[in-house]
Simulated assay, not measured.
Amino acid sequence: MNEQAPTYKNHRFPISIVARAVWLYFRFNLSLREVEEMMLERGVEVSYETIRRWCSSHGSSLTARLRRKTPLASDVWHLDEVVVSIGGKKCWLWRAVDQDGYVLDEIVQTRRNTKAAKRLLVRLLKKQGCAPKRIVTDKLRSYGAAKRQLMTNVEHRSHKGLNNRAENSHLPFRKRERTRQGFRSIGSLQHFVSIFSATRNHFVQASSIRSAGLIRAHRINAIAEWKATAHKLA
């Protein structure tokens, strides 16, 4: 019996199947074995180890081609950091989100000081291409010191109660961290959050979209764009 010709760069499955597995894993709070079971329900027999390789190899290429939110000088950046334990050692995931909860950037670092805060701001300025109207942080002094070196004319509000938007952005990551049972290295954490946040940015609507009809339309458009992006990779 002749074997079916391989598709999508020598994969046994077409890109639509690969993209669906990647979507399930990064979009929902599922383990690799749960994704394996959901794929089996669809008639696709694939192991969780293969799904792991798909997510590692093709997650970045898929999310890199998704439409990004246009940076605006009127944006407000909310900055915060959360501790993550890897192999018994502490590191910090530094994250920036805008006024709509859209993740602008995040970086894993081993320090929680001015140098680390400055590195985050440098990445943000380079990626966004413009400074924000205002930054909002907690009371960590490192943010103020870094801001004075890089963005002297930008307003800075530092108050624990003002930074709920950034703190709330950690919650989806914390759920995934528990499902994954932690991370093995700083590199694996950085790789995961870059794909996870890009996927979440694409599918989660802005806080201004409140009606059920608009939410449904946004989800339909997001799914269609995901599939179209996958088709371009085939």
Rank of each mutant, 00 (worst) to 15 (best):
G87R: 02
R42M: 15
I51P: 14
E41R: 10
D75Q: 15
G87C: 07
L79T: 05
R68A: 03
A64M: 03
G87L: 04
Y48M: 02
R42Y: 11
Y48C: 09
G88P: 06
R65A: 10
R42S: 12
T70R: 10
E49D: 14
I51M: 02
G59Q: 14
H78M: 00
D75V: 01
D80Y: 00
A64S: 14
C55S: 09
E41F: 08
V84M: 06
E45G: 04
L72W: 06
V84D: 02
E45K: 15
T50H: 13
L72T: 13
S74Q: 11
S56F: 13
K69A: 04
D75T: 06
T70G: 00
V82N: 12
C55V: 10
T50Y: 08
E81I: 12
L72S: 15
R65P: 05
S47R: 03
V46Y: 06
L79N: 05
L79C: 06
G87H: 04
V44R: 04
T70K: 07
R67M: 05
E45S: 13
G43H: 11
R52M: 09
V44P: 13
D75G: 09
I86S: 03
D80C: 01
L66V: 03
R67G: 01
W77Y: 07
V83M: 12
T50C: 13
G59A: 09
S85I: 14
L66Y: 12
L72P: 05
K69G: 01
L62P: 10
V44S: 12
H58Q: 11
H78A: 00
R68T: 01
C55L: 06
Y48R: 06
G88N: 02
S85Q: 14
I51G: 09
E45M: 06
G43W: 04
R42A: 15
I51E: 09
L62Y: 08
L79V: 02
H78V: 00
K69F: 02
T63C: 09
R53P: 02
V46K: 01
R67S: 08
S57H: 14
A73N: 07
L66C: 10
W77L: 03
S60R: 15
A73S: 13
L62G: 06
L72Y: 04
V83C: 11
I51Q: 08
R42E: 15
S47T: 07
S47Q: 01
G59T: 11
V76M: 02
R52I: 04
W77Q: 08
S61T: 13
G43Y: 08
L66S: 05
R52Q: 14
V76E: 02
E45D: 10
S61C: 04
G88D: 07
L79D: 04
R65F: 03
